[in-house]
Nucleic acid binder design. Sequence first.
DNA 1: TTGGTCCCTTGACCATAGTCATGTCACGCG
DNA 2: CGCGTGACATGACTATGGTCAAGGGACCAA
Lengths: 235, 235
Amino acid sequence: MPNERRRKIAQTSLLLQSFPQDIQETLLGLSSWREYDRGETLFLQGESAHAIHIVTDGWVKLYRIAPNGGEAVVNVFAKGESFGEAVAFRGHAYPVSAEAVTACEVMRIPSVALLEAMRKDPEIAVSVLASTFTHLHSLVAQLEQLKAQTGPQRVAEFLLGLCHQEEGSCVVTLPYDKFLIAGRLGMKPESLSRSFSKLKTVGVHINRNNAAIENIDRLREYSETDPVEAWHKAQ
Amino acid sequence: MPNERRRKIAQTSLLLQSFPQDIQETLLGLSSWREYDRGETLFLQGESAHAIHIVTDGWVKLYRIAPNGGEAVVNVFAKGESFGEAVAFRGHAYPVSAEAVTACEVMRIPSVALLEAMRKDPEIAVSVLASTFTHLHSLVAQLEQLKAQTGPQRVAEFLLGLCHQEEGSCVVTLPYDKFLIAGRLGMKPESLSRSFSKLKTVGVHINRNNAAIENIDRLREYSETDPVEAWHKAQ
DNA sequence: TTGGTCCCTTGACCATAGTCATGTCACGCG
DNA sequence: CGCGTGACATGACTATGGTCAAGGGACCAA
């Protein structure tokens, strides 16, 4: 079994990387792994939480089903990212559901194990808090996007987040299908499609699941301009 | 000075209430208080954080200014609520700005003091995490509302959150001005006004800053129905 | 009482995005 | 090769909510 690979990924995950070596080992020893097929459910909102999850391969989405039936995608996690930190400690109910969007592999650290580690080394608690803060921050950023930006602007920012360059041109690969991207950005697939066409006027061209960005600065400027100005530019 | 009152409120705050008596005392001793006038800024996004804030009187709003100039209200905190837990420990930059929406009084616990307390008693760390989780949860709930509910439905849910009853009828007082409520719900004051008029058809009547709810169950049902159905009901 | 200000409401108009229906294109299979 | 399937794009129509402008009403001070 590819146990070494899993360990390596887990150790370089955002949550565990700052832990001392010996605590990493202990936690890895107490953890379990599981593989999921695309579409499988990891847990449902309302279930009580007893473990922290770290994605070691594939993609996992967190979503919420509103009382009226609408689905809101809260976040999508890739290899090396963790979720469920804050929920697990008090055995609270998950506020969201989790589903594999590709075949994936997930490591679970029982919350009691992490609690034990926190008792030994209070620095661990700070790391967990820092990790939770990252999630808080991402949610705040999403709220800002939804409240203060138009659809095409949100798409622009999403694309900017994918290319790890500051300027020039580049080609990025869309990480998951457009249906899910649309959900993540709070819109319908049709609107995503239309947003892509609007972005042609600022030098973005979509081909299959690749997006070619002519000029990163130009796209950033577009995502940061006032909605009403943006409208004139993208006319 | 009304030092006793402050202490009492701080001790019953969501963050501190579960702490052992002696740690509460230590933290209170190391904390500072400050009063703010309406409209004053507590801190701005980008500043680095070194303290946890607890509101002991009045209301404080957390908001974010997007690059395009749009304001997104992230949350509004009342007496007894705390914010900034997760940010402070690593001296990270605040992801949001804070402003007094009424005259208010805020207690600050230096993060080093809380860190010290966490070293003494790991249970403290769990409490801080639990408090952070509450914020995470509230953000997730807001995301869901924005993505999956119409304006009037969000207003309905906001009103339901204000009345601490399960059924029957009641009158609630709007806690802050309508401009801010609109921001908190991701809409313009005009839209809030229109939402209120729509809610008349499900038995909600607004008078100055009081909202009379005829039947809580009816309002809840409205907030939970499908947007397209909701439209027919509120016609 | 008068006038002024502030806050909220209302109406008209329009852009953004959702819905529904249809069209296109790549891919896999017999 | 034709056919079906699934993912995506596009077009027409509609509704939700933003913008701008005007109106009402509470409150305050002269």
